[in-house]
């Protein structure tokens, strides 16, 4: 799985590279518009993460270029502008997803995984983790081949945990993922507790191991040994 990261901020670039490398991706990076175009023209990638504001050009022009040459790569636009106009424009010209800065790495991780799943039509569509099997297409979950009926938020929560298994996820991080666009208006993250409690109960009822580990004061870790 090969990813190109186009980001001019060195600290951010380094941190993302390290993280994606640890997640098992092959990751390359470019720090300006010209270098990015060079890489795109010479190599092919499964996924491209592109920042909107770049030295020597605009990230959205890279998206246009990729679309113009029928690139198969999945594109995630990253923007510090936090401008929903950028989001709309980015998605309009053919980007697959949009992530406003500042974001959690686990959120980026979940988006990349979801994007790759959507692009990977061949092969097994289901996500399988020990006794848990998820079908992202119709958002259904089964444990030991027995279907578990989850609410929409519980499903999102489980998928986020599985995408970021063995990572400590803070409550704020999980809350932001669940709330999505309204994240900026939420100042209390206690609501995730209710959803998590119900999710755990439903999974355990079907004989699933309780993988959710509570990290005191911080959040949770979906631990697969």
């Amino acid at each position: 799985m090969k990813i190109l990261l186009i980001e001019d901020e060195p600290d951010l670039r380094k941190a993302i590279k390290l993280f994606l490398h640890n997640e098992g991706y092959t990751i390359e990076s470019a720090d300006d518009f010209v270098k990015a175009l060079e890489k795109i023209n010479n190599y092919s990638y499964d996924c491209i993460l592109v920042d909107v504001t770049l030295p020597k050009g605009n990230g959205l022009d890279i998206v246009k270029h990729l679309k113009a040459c029928n690139s198969k790569a999945g594109i995630i636009v990253i923007s510090a502008k936090n401008s929903l106009d950028d989001k709309i424009e980015g998605l309009d010209i053919g980007a697959d997803d949009y992530l406003p800065k500042p974001f959690h790495l686990s959120e980026l991780n979940a988006r990349i995984k979801s994007l790759i799943r959507r692009r990977n039509f061949d092969g097994n569509k289901n996500i399988v983790l020990n006794e848990i099997s998820i079908n992202p297409e119709n958002r259904s979950v089964s444990v030991n081949n027995e279907e578990v009926i989850l609410t929409s938020k519980e499903y999102d929560l489980l998928l986020y945990f599985i995408s970021n298994k063995n990572r400590v996820l803070s409550k704020a991080n999980i809350a932001e993922h669940l709330v999505g666009d309204h994240a900026d208006q939420i100042d209390n993250h206690d609501f995730i507790y209710t959803h998590l409690k119900n999710l755990r109960k439903k999974l355990i009822e079907k004989g699933c191991t309780d993988y959710v580990q509570t990290i005191y004061g911080i959040g949770y870790n979906f631990k697969i040994l």
Binding site: D11, L12, A15, H104
Partner: peptide, 10 residues
């Protein structure tokens, strides 16, 4: 802010 957030995640 993005850098702080990512550093914290790590």
């Amino acid at each position: 802010l993005a850098i702080i957030k990512i550093a914290l995640d790590n």
